[in-house]
Simulated scan of single mutants.
Amino acid sequence: MASLCEAGERLQREMRTLLRGERQLPADLRAALQEVLSPEAEPLVSFQVLRRLHGFLRESGYPGYLHELLEGSRIYLPKVETPPRNPELVARLEKIKAKLANDDYKRITRNINCQELNRYGSLADFGRHVRSMKALVITIFNFIVTVGAAFVCTYLGSQYLFTEIAARVLSAVIVASVVGLAELYVLVRTMEGELGEL
């Protein structure tokens, strides 16, 4: 807490006038003012001396007020000297900071996979895509072969029923369409089951 005031020009001038003047200052107040005005020391006045000075001036009929005397003065705040830090504490705090920074980094990067940083994906992704493409190609090939085989079997088998080619082709198209729709139904149900498992 501040207990000193750095005397401004007006306060110093008034103190010099009081020391040179005809007013009779108490000895302890005179000594305190001379100490403040000594050229080797800083002009620092304690609040206690200011109170005594103000009381003396009021008793002697001084026409001014204390705040007028203190114009240009500042409260003196000494520099606070911080004690040196304990090296063990500093080392421990550094370890804690490093651990917290590492935990934050892990939390931020926990969903990043280094293999996925490649814009083309990793080899595991490539294998997964190849397997899904392979299954899709096999399914399409199976669908075409089944529908084609149904058409050919019906066309060849209908020669015993129909003698005209148009009737044979029409019956082969109808049977191939029914087989194709049945194949699509089975394919959709299979895909629906696979999606449900995901």
Rank of each mutant, 00 (worst) to 15 (best):
residue 148 G to D: 12
residue 149 A to C: 10
residue 12 Q to C: 10
residue 39 P to V: 02
residue 192 E to K: 05
residue 167 A to M: 07
residue 72 G to D: 07
residue 58 R to E: 15
residue 61 G to Y: 03
residue 7 A to S: 04
residue 188 V to S: 08
residue 17 T to V: 00
residue 102 N to R: 10
residue 118 N to D: 13
residue 144 I to C: 14
residue 150 A to H: 10
residue 139 T to D: 15
residue 3 S to M: 07
residue 196 G to K: 11
residue 124 A to V: 12
residue 54 H to C: 11
residue 156 L to A: 09
residue 69 L to W: 03
residue 184 L to D: 13
residue 49 V to N: 13
residue 122 S to C: 14
residue 172 A to N: 02
residue 157 G to P: 06
residue 144 I to P: 00
residue 175 V to S: 11
residue 92 R to A: 13
residue 1 M to A: 01
residue 94 E to P: 01
residue 7 A to T: 07
residue 119 R to A: 11
residue 99 K to T: 10
residue 8 G to P: 05
residue 111 N to E: 13
residue 166 A to Q: 11
residue 61 G to L: 01
residue 119 R to P: 14
residue 99 K to M: 08
residue 84 P to R: 09
residue 73 S to C: 10
residue 2 A to F: 05
residue 9 E to H: 02
residue 112 I to D: 00
residue 179 V to E: 12
residue 141 F to H: 08
residue 6 E to W: 05
residue 174 I to R: 12
residue 138 I to C: 00
residue 172 A to E: 09
residue 180 G to N: 04
residue 180 G to P: 00
residue 36 V to T: 00
residue 79 K to F: 04
residue 192 E to W: 06
residue 136 L to G: 12
residue 174 I to Y: 03
residue 44 L to E: 07
residue 60 S to K: 08
residue 2 A to D: 02
residue 11 L to M: 09
residue 85 R to Q: 08
residue 1 M to H: 04
residue 175 V to D: 03
residue 28 D to L: 03
residue 134 K to I: 02
residue 166 A to H: 02
residue 22 E to W: 10
residue 51 R to I: 07
residue 168 R to V: 11
residue 72 G to P: 04
residue 39 P to S: 04
residue 7 A to Y: 01
residue 193 G to T: 14
residue 38 S to D: 09
